[in-house]
């Protein structure tokens, strides 16, 4: 499919959405404040469109060239194992992927996770960590509200994103290990495109 517009994918809803819009504005892009329903919003001052998509789908769009650029948390790239070129690290959307256990748990260090049940929405990141540490464990994959899994008897530990640590505290969980620290990054599709280069030059990316 041939396109004349540059497309920039960003998170439709969530913590990265507003800072992402602010960042694009800071580059000089002008676009209407959409109402949250429109998925493609054209820019007023450039041949470019803003594409609002699910956060975890962002890499897919860029990898296949359906979007030329995107802003995404690098934890998503790591989880989905996408090797996409980062143009720039953006100084927002900071968070950490951690392993946490109930305050009264007998699990104190990562070696104690051997044979235990770990609930997570980031199974691949967790798998990579377990592989590196040579720990065997049951990975219980759930989509959301991971932090309640231990209290409900579904898991012995969780592997989840945390920003301030408040959610963990509220659920009587403590961090025993940080897998990695994440922040928003500006990424670029792997396909050559003159318009893309022009765009990069014009907005000095």
């Amino acid at each position: 499919m041939k396109r004349n517009n540059i497309r920039i994918a960003i998170q439709k809803e969530g913590r990265l959405r507003n800072p992402s819009l602010e960042y694009l504005e800071s580059l000089g892009l002008q676009f209407p404040k959409e109402n949250g329903r429109t998925l493609v919003v054209p820019c007023k001052n450039a041949d470019a469109e803003i594409l609002y998509v699910r956060h975890s789908d962002v890499p897919q769009y860029v990898q296949n060239g359906a979007a030329d650029f995107a802003i995404v948390g690098d934890n998503v790239l790591y989880e989905k194992d996408f090797k996409i070129r980062e143009v720039e690290k953006l100084n927002f959307g900071k968070c950490s992927l951690v392993i946490a256990v109930p305050l009264d748990s007998s699990i104190q260090k990562i070696q104690d996770l051997e044979g235990e049940r770990i609930a997570t929405s980031y199974p691949n990141s967790l798998r990579k960590f377990l592989q590196k540490q040579k720990i065997n464990a049951a990975i219980i994959e759930i989509r959301g509200s991971v932090e309640v899994a231990p209290a409900l008897g579904l898991a012995d530990a969780i592997c989840d994103l945390t920003q301030t640590g408040n959610t963990l505290k509220e659920n009587s969980l403590k961090t025993i290990e940080t897998l990695f620290d994440s922040m928003a990054v500006f990424i670029e599709s792997p396909f050559e495109n003159i318009r893309k280069d022009e765009f990069i030059n014009r907005f000095q990316l």
């Binding site: 049940r117 464990a137 049951a138 994959e141």
Partner: peptide, 19 residues
Amino acid sequence: QKTIPVNQLVSYLSNYYEA
């Protein structure tokens, strides 16, 4: 050794990750 509810046995074994 790990003791779990019988109901979770299938889930535990099929999601067990072996490094």
